[in-house]
């Protein structure tokens, strides 16, 4: 006999001896049929961090428990009967899947069950739960399409069964707005590393912040946000430029290449390989900018072999505070075939 768990009520005990009950930490309890560590990867962990919660996954592959910065550890293996018993305590039937957010006082804050299973994966379900938690206090922000979808799903979240979050790629693309300042932001399309990404941005948003904060491309670094360090260098239509002084809206229609777009799968770009071999880096923070700048510089030079002095001159817009400069020159010079 299953019965629903009420929002605001005390969460049922999982009654798993291997699971140390930490009363002072929020917890997401998820019931899914099959789950493996790494299944939702970084997105899942980001959602857990956002909630400040640990995750307990009760699944046919076992019970997994971990914080967002821990390795997923299997704390128990349950027989189908045990699984059903635990599920029943939470009102989850045999075929159903569910997500519960339990606060540090042990009270259920969010309860979401779906007899048809969680569409969009566990990370999206937890994301929707997090949006619902925020819904009271947070004003509507500048959301991308996936976030809009999630936000649309969260109203009354605790009371309705979620039929599934639309995965982001299924979102319909709208025509970009050419010249407007919509109150909710500019709809733009960016061609990044060969993929067109549609999103709404604050007209004030730089290309750099858009890459880092919105598109998850954090390889491009923010060092000064004033065009004075070169850490944010990207290629725009093949030319090296600073993404911190480029408004995202102004990068439309250009082919944007970031450090993430350089390697071919596992095969490093020759410049990347050269930086590894010559130790052209230490802390690594200026490194993506150095590499993008070096790639841009060699493209500018065409077939011409640059002298060391020319390389130094051509790289003078990229500060390296660790002082890897001599190794950077060596790396760039060795990146071309026919050079030692």
């Amino acid at each position: 006999m299953t019965h629903a768990v009420a929002v605001g009520a005390r969460a049922p005990d999982l009654a798993l001896p291997a699971l140390v009950e930490t009363a002072d930490c929020p917890r997401v309890i998820a019931f899914v049929h099959r789950w493996h560590p790494g299944a939702d990867g970084a997105a899942l962990r980001a959602e857990l961090r956002g909630l400040g919660a640990e995750l307990v996954v009760v699944s046919g592959t076992g019970v997994w428990a971990f914080g967002p910065d821990d390795h997923a550890e299997r704390v128990a293996l349950l027989s189908p009967r045990q699984l059903a018993t635990v599920g029943a305590r939470f009102g989850v039937s045999g075929r159903g899947e569910a997500v519960f957010v339990v606060d540090e006082h042990g009270l259920v804050r969010i309860a979401h069950r779906s007899d048809a299973g969680l569409a969009g994966g566990l990370a999206d379900a937890i994301a929707a739960a997090a949006q619902a938690m925020l819904a009271d206090s947070a004003p509507a922000g500048m959301l991308d399409r996936r976030e809009w979808n999630l936000a649309a799903l969260v109203s009354g979240f605790a009371f309705v069964f979620l039929t599934g979050c639309k995965p982001r790629d299924r979102a319909q693309r709208e025509a970009p707005v050419e010249a407007a300042a919509l109150p909710e932001g500019l709809a733009i399309e960016l061609d990044v590393n060969g993929k067109v990404r549609a999103l709404r941005v604050d007209p004030r948003a730089s290309l750099l912040d858009t890459l880092r904060e919105r598109l998850g491309l954090t390889g491009t670094k923010k060092g000064c946000d004033m065009g004075q360090c070169g850490a944010c260098t990207v290629l725009l239509d093949g030319e090296r430029m600073l993404s911190c002084l480029t408004l995202a809206a102004m990068a439309q229609g250009k082919k944007i290449v970031t450090i993430e777009g350089l390697a071919q799968g596992d095969e490093l770009h020759p410049m990347q390989r050269a930086f590894v071999e010559r130790d052209g880096l230490q802390c690594g923070y200026c490194t993506p900018g150095q590499i993008m700048s070096a790639v841009g510089m060699l493209a500018e030079a065409g077939d011409r072999q640059l002298t060391d002095a020319e390389v130094r001159h051509g790289m003078s817009g990229n500060l390296c505070r660790c002082g890897a400069y001599p190794n950077i020159v060596a790396a760039i010079q060795s990146s071309r075939p026919g050079r030692p």
Binding site: A138, T218, F275, D279, G284
Partner: peptide, 19 residues
């Protein structure tokens, strides 16, 4: 070095934290 030259080394402000 590999993580650093590919942009996958995650520095503090880049650690994914939803919301």
């Amino acid at each position: 070095a590999r993580a650093k030259v590919t942009g996958t080394a995650t520095y503090t402000s880049e650690i994914g934290v939803a919301n």
